[in-house]
Design a protein around this nucleic acid. Structure first.
Length: 270
DNA sequence: GCCCAGGGAATCG
DNA sequence: CGATTCCATGGG
């Protein structure tokens, strides 16, 4: 396969793609990952500080894929700021290469509606079936379906997805996304509380789903999604909340804490 | 405030 | 192996 390689430092592809923020990237047997983004099926393999990329042109990498992977943010600077807190410093050192991705807003919103009360393996299966049934065939792989396409459906139409009670939430989001109730520019630029309130007008979008959408799909690095793992970690590690200096990057801090809480064994029940 | 909704993975006994 | 638990949100 034709491809190219680029050097990226301070970045872990595997930790970034496996930390629960995206659902369309699958690990290959060779340790690389294949996913659909920007209407292309793209494969990426990391060795040391080099990314080997195929399925995407090198100028597209610099046009958007690099930004999609969260590589446009200066993590060195962010981590310097967050590391002033010793607990954050420890979480960062545990997996220093995690980046927050910048995925398309609609795909992120729809994916996190599906993610609620659900586990990652099953979320990925539902999203696969969503794309196969209602996305465009791009030649053996499928685009994420547009809100306009899904807005025309009724809950029974989604039965092939086996997504349970979330069917009507997906459709309500699609309707509100395509009729302008949800405004992408507003979500990305308004004060965080106002952007969150707009997302929460969708049936099936509570604070957790809204904050995930803001963080992973709108570049709102101050959004701070709280799930059971984060709650558990905050209750024992940050009883006073995050320090003020961390708040502009609370979402990035969240991702380090989340990964640390879930995988370090620190919070396993005994 | 309480419980249920639909489903599959994870964990328990 | 089967039984139980987990999960985010809305609705009754």
């Amino acid at each position: 396969m034709d491809g190219f390689s680029v050097a990226e430092y301070d970045f872990s592809l595997a930790d970034t793609l496996r930390c629960g923020q995206c659902f369309r990237w699958k690990e290959n047997e060779n340790g690389g990952f294949t996913g659909v983004a920007g209407g292309k099926q793209i494969s990426i393999c990391q060795s040391e500080n080099k990314l080997e990329i195929s399925g995407c042109r090198e100028d597209d990498y610099h046009m958007w894929l690099r930004d999609y992977l969260g590589l446009s943010i200066d993590y060195k600077q962010v981590k310097d700021i967050l590391s002033a807190d010793p607990t954050l410093k420890q979480a960062i050192q545990y997996a220093p290469g995690i980046h927050i991705m910048r995925q398309p807003l609609w795909e992120t919103l729809c994916s996190f509606i599906i993610s609620q009360n659900n586990n990652i393996t099953r979320i990925m299966g539902i999203i696969d079936r969503l794309c196969e049934n209602f996305g465009c065939d791009l030649g053996g792989y499928y685009s994420f379906p547009s809100p306009e396409r899904l807005a025309a459906l009724s809950p029974p139409d989604l039965s092939p997805l086996r997504c349970g009670f979330r069917d009507r939430y997906i459709i309500d989001a699609a309707v509100k996304y395509s009729d302008g109730t949800i405004n992408e520019h507003f979500i990305k630029t308004a004060p965080l509380d106002d952007a969150r309130a707009m997302l929460m007008r969708i049936t099936g979008v509570g604070r957790k789903v809204a904050d995930c959408t803001l963080l992973f799909g709108a570049g709102r690095l101050d959004a701070f999604p709280v799930d059971v793992w984060i709650k558990r970690a905050m209750d024992s590690l940050f009883t006073e909340g995050l320090p003020d200096f961390a708040l502009p990057y609370a979402g990035i801090a969240q991702q380090y804490i989340f990964h640390y809480a879930r995988t370090s064994g620190l919070f396993d029940k005994k």
